[in-house]
Simulated scan of single mutants.
Amino acid sequence: MLLSGGILLINTGCSLSSLTRQAESEDSRQVVNVFTTRHYYVDSMLFQEFTKRTGIHVNEVKGTAEELVERMKKEGEASSADILLTVDGGALEFAKQQDVLQKIKTETLLRNVPMEWRDKEHYWFGIATRARVIVYAKDRVRMEELSTYEDLTNERWKGKVLVRSSSSLYNQSLLASFIELHGEQQAEKWAQGIVRNFAREPEGGDKSQAKAIVAKVGDVAIMNTYYIGQMLNSNDPEEREIAEKLGVFFPNQLTTGTHVNISGIGLAKNAPNKENAIKFAEFLTSKEGQTLLVQGSFEFPVNPESTMPTLLKDWQNFKRQPIDVASLRRLHNNATEIFENVGWQ
């Protein structure tokens, strides 16, 4: 059958009125639009479980924190963003400062997320934490040889240290934490020492550093814990084999503690689906949501009621830096300048 304009309508047993009702149904279905910087497979599983429980479909928009925040600012009241989901406390604080978030405070969220892992003014809530540690070759390095981040600048580690580039938010927050704890002069001295001991110029992500250790490019690397957890439980036998040859060491346990950062969520200032967004935030921080999250990502949960994999239980009792990770955002520019000064690309 031909309609005006020569468009062919194939008869599938549906009338025009039923097709119209179907389109209207799809347009009116419950949704939540998540602007996310994360790239983990477990997130898709979480979103599917949320949809299964609530009937609310999750639409993902991916990008860097800067890209997503800029888009939210540019679109203003017309923005489709309901939730901003990102890694790094500094990125969450940046979004707050750029006025793209609104306060979100429910009894459920306050119960799910301890005070230390949420914004004091309730503009964002943490969903998971991760520690930045020293990973080492079990066949070439004894655990007793390791102690602190500062010790990695020692002459004996010359040509043996692996780490990703200075553009990494993880490294920017790590260096910012040293500025906070020790001042810029000492932080720059540390960065100089690490550059001096590079096994190679920085390249790739944290998993690339792990692979380079096993390939004997270097002996130690600065990495986030969850990458080792993911590799040990990977479907890829090569990744499992690599991870089994590596040890994880939590530095500075007798001094300032190990650096910890967070992943978190904020409610978009102009969220068109605010109620759905709040339900989404409450699910991600619930016992069930947190258990599903950490079983797949191997980050540490923020909800103490969640069930952790054995590996995380073995790792969890460590001393962490006594600083507010979100506040480190104000020191990221200082950290970037230091990286440039010392030649950390």
Rank of each mutant, 00 (worst) to 15 (best):
T12Y: 03
K216G: 07
E121A: 15
F339S: 04
S147N: 10
E75I: 04
S173I: 00
T225S: 10
K211Y: 08
K74A: 14
W117N: 15
V195T: 08
A271K: 00
V58P: 07
K158S: 09
D206K: 03
Q185M: 03
E184R: 13
T129H: 06
K73T: 11
M45W: 05
L293W: 10
Q345H: 11
K269T: 02
E305R: 12
A131G: 10
S166I: 01
Y40C: 08
E121L: 11
E150Y: 10
R118C: 03
R29W: 02
D314V: 13
N276C: 03
T225M: 01
P304R: 05
F35Q: 08
D236C: 08
A277L: 02
I222C: 01
V100L: 02
W190N: 02
F198L: 15
M115Y: 12
R29C: 09
L110D: 13
L293F: 14
F94N: 12
G76Q: 04
F249N: 09
D82Q: 05
T256V: 14
G193F: 00
W157I: 04
D119P: 06
L293S: 15
P251N: 05
P114M: 04
I104M: 12
G266E: 01
V34R: 05
W124P: 01
M223P: 00
D206Y: 04
A210E: 10
K216I: 04
R21S: 15
V31H: 06
L68G: 09
V161A: 00
S44R: 09
G257V: 06
E203M: 13
I179Y: 00
K52H: 12
E26A: 14
Q186K: 15
G229V: 02
E26T: 11
Q253P: 06
M308L: 13
A91Q: 08
V325L: 07
T336Y: 10
L232S: 07
V141C: 07
P237Q: 09
W315P: 03
A187D: 00
D236N: 15
L3I: 09
W344T: 12
V248P: 06
L19P: 10
E60V: 14
A128R: 02
D324S: 13
Y149V: 02
K269I: 02
E66L: 12
Y226A: 07
P251K: 04
A187C: 01
T258L: 00
H259K: 00
K269S: 03
E203G: 08
R200Y: 05
E93K: 14
E180F: 10
T64E: 05
N252W: 01
V325D: 08
D314Y: 09
E155K: 12
Q172S: 06
A335R: 04
R320K: 15
V342F: 07
I10C: 10
